[in-house]
Amino acid sequence: MHMADALISPAVGGAAWAGAAGLAAWSARKVRLEMDDRKAPLMGVLGAFVFSAQMINFAIPATGSSGHLGGGLLLAILLGPHAAFLTITSVLLVQALFFADGGLLALGCNVLNLGLFPCFIAYPLIYRPIAGTGLARGRVMAGALLGAVVALLMGAFAVVLETTASGISDLPFSSFLLFMLPIHLAIGIVEGLVTATVVLFVYQARPELAVAGQGSTGSGRAVAVALLLAAVITGGLLSWFASGNPDGLEWSIARTADTEELAAPGEGVHALSAHIQEKTVLMPDYAFGDASPEESAGVVRTGTTVAGLVGVGLTLLVAGTLALVFRPRRMSRGASA
C-alpha cells in the first residue's frame, strides 16, 4: 500500500525522507565498494521487470480474486539487500512521478515501508538464515513465506504509524491497525508463495544464479541492522513527537466523551505532542474561515463562511482568467497540426 502525500504531515514526511535518503546513500556506497559495476544495468533491468511482472495477475486460490507481485523480497534475493534497496527506491520514484502513486513527499515513507523491511530485515534476518544458499524447495518456500509476511506486516504497521502521527486522517491508531494487519497478513502470504515459486523456477533453470545472486554478506551486517533498527525507532518516535498536526489528535481526545472508538493507547503521547506543538508552532494555522477549531467555542459564523466562499470563487476566477490569458497562441496551431 502506498502512503500518500495527502495523508502525511511535513514532519513525518521529512523525517522519513531523511531516513530513506541516508539509507540510499549508504546502500549506494556499499554497492560501489563491494560489488562489481555490472550491478547497475542489472538493477535497472530488474526494476523494470518488477513493473512488467506487476502487469501479470495471478488467481488467488479459493477466493476468486486476483493479485500481483510486490517484488521487494524477490529483488533482495536476486540482488542482495543494498542493490535491491536502491532498485526499490527507483521503482517507487517512477511510480510517484509517472503513476502519481503516493506523491513526492510520501516517497520517503514508501521507501521505508516497502524497501527497508524486505531488504534489511526480512532478507538478511529471515530469508537467508532459513533458505540458506541451497536449493531446497521447502526451505526456500518457508523463508520466502515468513520473510514476506514479516516485511509486509512491518510495512503496514509503519503506514499506520505514519498516518496517525501525521494526524490528517481521523482513523484511530488501534482500529486502523486492526484494519491493516489482517489484510497485509493475507497479502504477505500470497507474496511469499509467489516469490518462492518464481525463485525456485529460476534456480532450477539456472542453478548458478543461486550462488551468484546471494550478493554480499558483510561481516558488519548484524551491527548495521541493529544500528538501523535503532535509527528507525528513534526516527519513528521523533516524527511522532514532531508531528506537524497533532491538533487533530488533540481534538479527538477532547471529544472522547462522545466518540467511543477513540484509541486508548498513545493518548498521553498525543496530549504531550500537542502541548509541544502549541509551544513551538512556527506557522499559524488557518482553517476554513479564520478561527482554528480549538478556539472556536461554537461554530464559525455564517458571515465569515460567505466571505470565505466568495474569496474561493474569486481566486478560481482570477486563476482561470490568467490561464486563459497566458494560454500560448501556438496552442491552437499545435492542436490542429
Binding site: V45, F49, N57, V194, V198
Partner: peptide, 29 residues
C-alpha cells in the same frame, strides 16, 4: 476462462520472464 494466471503456471511464466530479463541485463552490461 481463467481470471488470472494460476499460481502454478505463474511461477514458470514470470520466472521465464525473469530469466530473459537477467539475460538482457547481461547483454546490456
Amino acid at each position: 476462462r481463467s481470471r488470472g494466471v494460476s499460481l502454478r503456471v505463474y511461477g514458470s511464466l514470470v520466472g521465464s520472464l525473469l530469466l530473459r530479463t537477467l539475460d538482457r541485463g547481461q547483454r546490456v552490461y
